[in-house]
């Protein structure tokens, strides 16, 4: 039997997530270069209809169980481990999202297999798999080689365009049973809807984003004035929200919003991957940071190494003067 590469497909509110298609696109490349088959694994309950969208893969394994309807990492890891033991895939790609947090790690532990996090690329060379992973808040990249199978790869968003993983082809679909404990130790009680923001930031053309570099709640005023002068809205990174300086409805990134304004002005934001995920497709990204090595400069179009507290008032004034 040919070796197989697995992509674990994630659902969110009944839809297949973009990152799953990104993972399929990457999995396709790796399968093709290593002459392996690509299998999409779809854990869930009564969701076989979704399998039709997974034609990028050669085949789809629908792992059906009522318990898999809940996004409980240990339940999903247990189901995946059972299947992997039976079928011995060579590699298992798993999207790294908050929903799936812990699944790849638990799967590695259950299978006694190596698992890496934060991968942005994967390739097969001379029969071995090599991954590129981002560490230290985006400041360092690490290339690793797997010396044991299956290789479990936690895949970061953006590895490939999602569209590259979509296909109209109809894949072969196989339903498989998994046996899970009758009493789950972790259960989802309810979903909590987002707190309604006063504005829909995803529709704004201009966003002024504030990070921990703003240093105090009082300084938020400076950024707010700039946003007002530009006719834009204020948003921010996680620490600013954690401090209570901005509401959660204004957090950009992995747990917050994904935005695509015409201008994203990042003030004192380091550019950690969890933040960048939510703003990298903005039209024009301008970053202000005191650290010339800040990873935000790797995604920004224009950068300024400066103290935001000095630059912002000057910029507000200049904008006001131009607007008259």
């Amino acid at each position: 039997m040919a070796a197989s590469i697995w992509v674990v497909v994630e659902q969110w509110q009944g839809q297949i997530t973009d990152i799953s298609f990104e993972a399929l696109a990457l999995g396709r490349e790796v399968a093709d270069t290593s002459k392996a088959t690509l299998e999409a694994v779809l854990p869930g309950h009564q969701c076989a209809a979704l399998a039709e969208q997974l034609g990028c893969a050669d085949s789809v394994l629908c792992a059906d169980h009522p318990a898999l309807a809940e996004p409980v990492p240990e339940t999903h890891a247990a189901a995946l481990a059972e299947l992997a033991r039976q079928r011995q895939p060579r590699a298992i790609l798993i999207p790294v999202t908050n929903t799936a947090m812990g699944v790849s790690t638990l799967l590695g532990a259950l299978l006694d297999a190596p698992a890496v996090n934060f991968a942005i690329d994967l390739k097969a060379t001379d029969g071995t798999l090599e991954a590129r992973c981002v560490l230290y808040g985006g400041k360092v990249e690490t290339r690793v080689r797997f010396s044991k199978q299956p290789a479990i790869i936690g895949l970061w968003p953006g590895a490939r365009p999602a569209d590259q993983g979509r296909s109209d082809r109809k894949p072969a679909v196989e339903q498989v049973q998994v046996s899970l404990p009758s009493e789950a130790r972790v259960r989802l009680k309810r979903y909590i809807e987002p707190e309604a923001g006063e504005v829909d930031l995803t529709r704004e053309d201009i966003l002024v984003a504030v990070g921990r570099g703003i240093q105090s709640k009082d300084n938020m005023e400076l950024a707010e004035e700039l946003a007002r002068a530009l006719g834009g809205e204020l948003c921010g990174s996680r620490p600013v929200v954690d401090q209570g300086w901005l509401p959660l409805s204004r957090q950009i990134g992995k747990s917050g919003l994904t935005v695509k304004p015409k201008l994203y002005l990042a003030l004192g934001i380091s550019g950690a991957p969890e933040h960048v995920e939510g703003m990298k497709n903005s039209g024009l990204i301008v970053a202000v940071n005191t650290d010339p090595q800040a990873p935000i400069f790797n995604v920004a179009h224009y950068g300024v190494v400066a103290d935001a507290l000095e630059l912002v008032p000057a910029l507000t004034e200049a904008v006001r003067a131009r607007k008259g």
């Binding site: 990249e141 080689r145 990873p295 400069f297 790797n298 179009h301 300024v304 630059l311 000057a314 910029l315």
Partner: peptide
Amino acid sequence: GIEVLAMSKPEVAGRAAMLEGSPEEVAGKL
């Protein structure tokens, strides 16, 4: 089961064009 081959600063597609000068000069350029 994993061997580190190399660690490096990230490979990037393009880095930001940097603006320099006093706050007023940079504000003007922006």
